[in-house]
Structure formats: C-alpha cells, structure tokens
Nucleic acid binder design. Structure first.
Lengths: 166, 166
DNA sequence: GTCATACTGAAAATGAATTTCATTTTCAAC
DNA sequence: GTTGAAAATGAAATTCATTTTCAGTATGAC
C-alpha cells in the first residue's frame, strides 16, 4: 500500500518543521485557540511522513511518541491543519478520508491502483487552467478541483498474470 | 439543489427506455439473476429523472409508484445498473453516493457549488486524453477518472452579496 | 497565582452503506 | 400448469468511519 510521493525533499528540514509549527501557532492565536503539546506532537508526526495518511494511520504513528494522545485529538488537529493550509484532504474514493502535506508543495494529482490501493502523484498544469476556463464559462467562482485517475498498476498486472498461468 | 444536465433530450423516448430495459434484462440473464417487477420499476423511475440521485432520493421516487419497494432493493438495483453500464456513481464529496444515467451519454464532468449543492455538467476531451497520457507514463492500465470543480455559483454569490448589504 | 476558557480523550452518537435472514417470487424442468 | 431449487425481497440489524458529548485537565491572559 505504497503512496509514492514524487517531489520535494525526502525529509523536511528542521527549518521547515519550525516554519510549519509557526503557521499552526499563529492560526491558533488568530482563532482564539490554545497551543498544546499534543497538537505540536501531531503536527511533527504528520510532517515526518511522506504518505497520504488516514486519521487512524496518523493516530497510530502519534501513539508511538505519546501513547496518551487519543484518536479524537488527532482527528481534530487534522482539521486544524487543513484550516491553516498545512494539510489537505485527498479523497481516494474508498470511503476513507486521507490527508497529505500541503505546505510548500507543488499542485499535483493522484493516480490510484484499484487493486492494491497504492498511488502515484503526477503534475499537470492543464487541469488548473481548465478549472479557470470552465469557471469563467459558467460564472462560478472556483475554489478547487479534484482530479484522480483510477487503474491497475504494473505490479498488480504482473501478479495477476503470474497467478493466472499457475 | 438543482443538478443541471446540459445535454441529450429532456425525456428519454419510449424506445430508449425499452433499450435500457433490454440491457438490464440481458445483464441479469448473463450473471444468472432474475427479472423482477421491482427491478423494472426502479430502472424506469431512474430513467425518468434527469438528476443525480442518491439511493435515498431514488427510493422516495420509487415509492410513489410502488410503496412496497424497500430501500434495500433500490440500493441493490443501483449496483446492478452500474454493473451493466446504465448508471454510474458520481461522488460530489459530501459523503453521499449519487448515481446518474450513463447509457448513451457523452463523457462529461461536474462543477459543484459548495454553498447550495447545485451542479452543472461540462465537457472536456482534454481530461480523457490526460488520463491516457499519464497512464502510459507510469505504466498504469487506466480504467476511469474523476474530475470535479468546486466553487460558488452565480446565484449564491448574488444572494450572499444581497444579505451583506442589508 | 487565579480563573475563565479551551483542551483532552473515552465513550457514545451519528449516519450512510452493507449484510442478515425469514419469507416470497421467479423460472426452468417436468 | 405444477414443482422446487435458486434468487429476490425488505425490515431490521450491523458495520464502520466520522463526529459529538461530557467530565476532568491544561493553558495563558491578567
């Protein structure tokens, strides 16, 4: 169940983690919420992974650092991260909400293997242009779009072929 | 909550309804299932609307024709219709699965208003080409894609502006 | 340090999707 | 037309991710 990410640095620098934390802290202040150790831990854990995480998966990772942090707090913190632009939800259409880093990332889209659930990211400026164009045409003020491609990855096709010849 | 459809005829001709019914009946035979009055009623009701229906909405429409038909049967029949290509699921990202006619329709995409939930359909051949191109590049055998644009429609912007000036 | 306010997390609630199961219906073979 | 195995039906129960509640705890402005 690999969720390949094909751009940016393998791990975020200490500098970037600090910047992300500042963004969160400013957002908390702006909306009258409080800074907590749990929220910081969750943010740091989130930034450390390169994958597309469900709330449940992130919760499991967070628990390795602080077993006392509950699912609910992870859930609420992911919403906060999305609010301040550090995370964004990606729907892979399998009934589970996933989040990925948003801070400092190029706009991209996903191609998902419907057999094993793995995904690759790809870039396409055409899609963004299309959003603008269609919005203008039908007088919508567009805010975002989703574009996903579904199919079967090479590995799964090979496996499938192998099992058939047995 | 209009779900505008911008192509094909306003209502399906008797001829097309019959053809669709034939497709369903053939599919049932192919997979060893049985023809029933309920399935026919559900298909006809589905074809009569031009909207993107949730299972619940279709169930309500179906009940006007035959109050004895249950939610479960509608749910299962929609899956059957999707299997034989008469319907396809569209995810508007609000947590509810919707279905639309697929038979004899041009490939299209949706732009959804996040304020009132209405949607318009648009056509873009570029998106299908992109699916092919990206699939080739990363060695996926692509099967389908989803592309949705989200934004605020003209009506909602006007309403919003009006309420602000009061 | 005080105290109002927000946070936390376990548990409960929610709600759409799906499954179960007893009963009824279909349809192919006779 | 009857029969009977297989499938269909629909009410109810279940599942499962998400969201809310609430009683106890921590934060941070003063």
């Amino acid at each position: 169940m690999l969720q390949k990410r094909i751009d940016d640095q393998p791990t975020l620098s200490r500098q970037m983690v600090r910047e992300a934390q500042d963004i969160l802290h400013r957002h908390l202040k702006d909306v009258g919420l409080k800074q907590t150790a749990q929220r910081d831990t969750i943010l740091r854990t989130f930034l450390e992974t390169r994958d597309h995480l469900s709330t449940d998966e992130l919760h499991r990772l967070v628990q390795r650092k602080d077993a006392g942090i509950g699912y609910t707090t992870v859930y609420r913190t992911l919403k906060l991260l999305a609010e301040c632009g550090l995370a964004s939800e990606v729907a892979f259409h399998d009934g589970i909400a996933r989040y990925e880093h948003q801070y400092n990332r190029r706009s991209h889209h996903h191609m998902v293997c419907t057999s094993c659930g793995s995904s690759v990211e790809f870039f396409s400026q055409e899609v963004g242009q299309l959003e603008q164009e269609i919005g203008r045409k039908y007088h919508y003020l567009t805010t975002r779009h989703t574009f996903q491609i579904y199919g079967i990855c090479e590995d799964c096709r090979k496996k499938n072929q192998a099992s058939r010849t047995i």
